[in-house]
Design a protein around this nucleic acid. Structure first.
Length: 705
DNA sequence: GAGCCTCGAGTTCC
DNA sequence: CTCGAGGCTC
């Protein structure tokens, strides 16, 4: 018995709801079969019929539209259309070098870290840096099973179906490890880009600003059939997760890639030393315009894999590679005026209003000027003709005025700009509070703090932002609106929005741009965040100098909200022990501690915090830093004497990678002292305190196990 | 006391 | 992404 063919007009509400449920799951199944498995089980026409019927029923029974409705998914922004994929091995970014000198420093850093002699060369592979999108391609048992974008490096988007449409992508490979993740760059050639744009234009579709945007836009199509019509190319150049070693050097690895059927950039070159990579760089720089594709520099990688492993990675980039960038593309334009904006912490940032100008395919109309010193150093004035470039090809910067054009009138003074006509001191442009530049700081600040509306608004934007409370639909624009209509003044108000709206005469849903649906969706999104992990709550408060990393450390140290809060209030009230406990946390020194305590010393803040907490359902305790499987995780280690198999710097990096904390001096809290030859006083001290002393070999055995 | 490394804050465009 | 500043090491 099925209602699937019944005219929509005859459906009862119960039937409608059941069928919407059935359609949602059927369409999701077909989507999976089509996009992920690439084995559709019904025809496109049949699929379209299901989608149309779903839409028709929703139109008649809007109250039954499901949160997972196919209509929402299809109309949704592409970012919501792809499944998230966690990278087994993070996709790191690269440090940049801009000058030959930077590259030589890189080479000597490598030698220092590896403990090589100053004249010992480090062979590197140099490859053009393609201006496209990084992707990760996963093969299991020789079959391509998943492709993902880089995303933030930890988590990307599943674009498997789209990648399958690329001619350069091998579907199967022979003789590869059971699990093999190849990394590469998806790009569009200059010729393909021009042809595509011509096609787009004659079809009345949007044209792309540059090949990179065209490649990105094409790969992020929700419909792989569209991607299939786009001329995308692929170069492979790196290794991700792998079930067994495949090579002993990068150069040999590139050979494997070719044998497996990947395109490898034919210009890649094995260079014996820094001089050779620099020669390569300048050669490529000269040939750049003649290449079929855009490049923005050259990448150098230490060739030997064993050295790469020893060098390891630091925060977000490997120590064994660097990107040598070409000079950024520049443009000149007129700087119309200098304005000043107010940040969340009261920082007053000057920014330039520009005559819109195309820089590397993107029209730029404003650029930050950072601070007073920067403006003075470059002598930038309103009315100047200036050179603009995009740093790292993203954020526009003002390089400086050009000399062959008439200069703007008078040197710029931020003090004068902040001082109102007839006034005698600088004030915040948003609230009129005193503005000042602290003795040893580069920025001017509004001293209005809690009374400055601009700061309050910025704090709310921060509160709701992705890394804080992550309230969907509550971005800058809506917060601005809700602030102006006096719906919200502090974080707690966000959670009272529903109640507030009920008592208002003019309801939110009656304002332009706020349908009933979008208001309900917003309230639901807010409600979903009444449970929050402690670290997010701490970060969301916007305490100066407390960003994501510090918030996480605080959460892990104090574990529960009550614990944390009591400790902060105690320390703010002068409790010495609480203060010492706080500053014992890594990276929290007197300065960060002072800002934390200043927050808790202010009654305004604690009251606002109380009100917020009253609105929340639960604050989840932090998980104590997971100690992993490593035997030295969480242990404090001291190295002393000369080590035979590694440099001190390397020993430290490796110990830290395994979760240990490497400290400089021996105390009762030290877990191990590792003594090389000629150990100094640290070993004696360890003996006195009864701290275990390991030889280098014992240490290596411990780490291995 | 200098230098390295990380973190925080502010920011542009689509 | 970049700059400035804090924390920590040598």
């Amino acid at each position: 018995m099925s209602t699937a063919d019944a005219p929509v007009a005859t459906l009862t509400p119960i039937e409608a709801r059941l069928e919407l449920e059935r359609l949602a799951s059927a369409i999701a199944r077909h989507d999976h079969a089509y996009h992920v498995l690439a084995q559709p089980v019904i025809s496109d026409a049949e699929y379209d019929a299901l989608v149309r019927r779903n839409a028709a029923i929703e139109a008649r029974f809007p109250e039954f539209v499901r949160p997972d409705s196919p209509s929402r998914r299809i109309g949704a922004a592409p970012a919501e259309g792809f499944r998230k994929v966690r990278h087994a091995v993070p996709m790191l970014s690269l440090d940049n070098a801009f000058t030959d000198e930077d590259v030589r420093e890189f080479a000597s850093r490598l030698r220092r870290f590896l403990g090589l002699a100053a004249d010992e060369p480090v062979a590197m592979v140099a490859e053009p840096k393609i201006d496209g999108l990084s992707i990760a391609l996963r093969y299991e048992n020789g079959r391509f099973v998943q492709g993902a974008t880089r995303g933030d490096g930890t988590e990307g988007e599943d674009v498997t179906a789209n990648l399958r449409t690329l001619a350069d992508l091998p579907r199967t490979i022979v003789g590869a490890p059971r699990v093999l993740e190849v990394r590469g760059e998806v790009y569009m050639t200059k010729a393909d880009f021009l042809a595509l744009n011509a096609r787009q234009e004659s079809a009345g579709d949007r044209v792309f600003a540059n090949p990179r945007n065209a490649a990105a836009g094409s790969l992020r199509q929700l419909d792989p059939r569209v991607t299939a019509t786009r001329p995308l190319s692929l170069f492979a150049y790196a290794l991700g997760e792998v079930s067994e070693p495949v090579a002993d050097s990068h150069w040999h690895f590139l050979d494997h890639l070719r044998q497996w059927g990947f395109k490898v950039n034919p210009l890649a070159k094995l260079c014996p030393d820094a001089d050779a990579v620099l020669a390569f760089y300048h050669q490529i720089g000269n040939d750049r315009a003649g290449l079929a594709y855009d490049i923005d520099g050259v990448v150098y990688k230490v060739d030997r894999f064993d050295w790469q492993a020893r060098l390891g990675t630091k925060d977000r980039s490997p120590r064994w590679a660097i990107a040598h960038k070409f000079p950024a593309e520049q443009a000149r334009t007129r700087l119309k005026a200098i304005h000043i904006s107010v940040g969340r912490t009261g920082v007053l940032t000057p920014w330039a209003e520009l005559e819109p100008v195309n820089v590397g395919g993107v029209v730029v109309s404003r650029a930050t000027l950072h601070n007073e010193d920067d403006i003075r150093r470059k002598d930038i004035r309103a009315g100047d003709t200036v050179v603009i470039q995009r740093a790292g090809d993203v954020i526009p910067q003002v390089v400086g005025p050009v000399s062959d054009q008439p200069r703007g009138r008078g040197e710029y003074s931020i003090r004068a700009a902040l001082t109102p006509p007839g006034g005698d001191h600088p004030v915040c442009p948003a609230c009129g509070s005193h503005a000042a530049r602290a003795e040893n700081e580069a920025v001017w600040r509004c001293t209005g703090g809690l009374v400055c509306p601009a700061q309050a608004k910025e704090r709310l934007i921060h509160f709701a932002s992705r890394d804080a409370f992550d309230i969907e639909g509550l971005g800058e624009k809506n917060i601005e609106f809700l602030w102006d209509k006096e719906y919200i003044r502090q974080p707690a108000d966000i959670f009272r929005l529903g109640e507030e709206n009920r008592v208002r005469l003019q309801k939110l849903e009656n304002f332009e741009g706020w349908g009933k649906r979008s208001v309900e969706k917003l309230f639901a999104a807010i409600d979903a965040r009444r449970t929050v992990p402690l670290e997010r709550l701490i970060y969301a408060l916007g305490i100066r100098q407390v960003g994501e990393a510090t918030a996480k450390r605080l959460a892990r140290h104090y574990v529960s909200f009550c614990h944390w809060r009591e400790a902060m209030e105690a320390a703010a009230a002068g409790d010495d022990e609480a203060y010492r406990d706080l500053t014992s946390i890594e990276d929290i020194g007197p300065s960060v501690a002072a800002d934390l305590l200043a927050f808790f010393a202010e009654e305004h803040n604690t009251t606002a915090l109380d009100k917020l907490v009253a609105q929340l359902r639960r604050i989840d305790d932090a998980r104590a830093a997971h100690t992993g499987g490593s035997p030295i995780a969480g242990r404090a280690v001291v190295f002393t004497g000369t080590l035979a198999t590694m440099t001190r710097q390397e020993a430290k990096a490796r110990a830290e990678a395994l979760g240990a904390k490497v400290v400089g001096s021996v105390s009762r809290k030290t877990d191990y002292v590792v003594a090389g030859t000629d150990p100094g006083s640290k070993a004696t001290e360890a003996q006195k305190l009864g701290v275990p002393i390991l030889t280098e070999q014992q240490w290596l055995d411990l780490v291995k196990g």
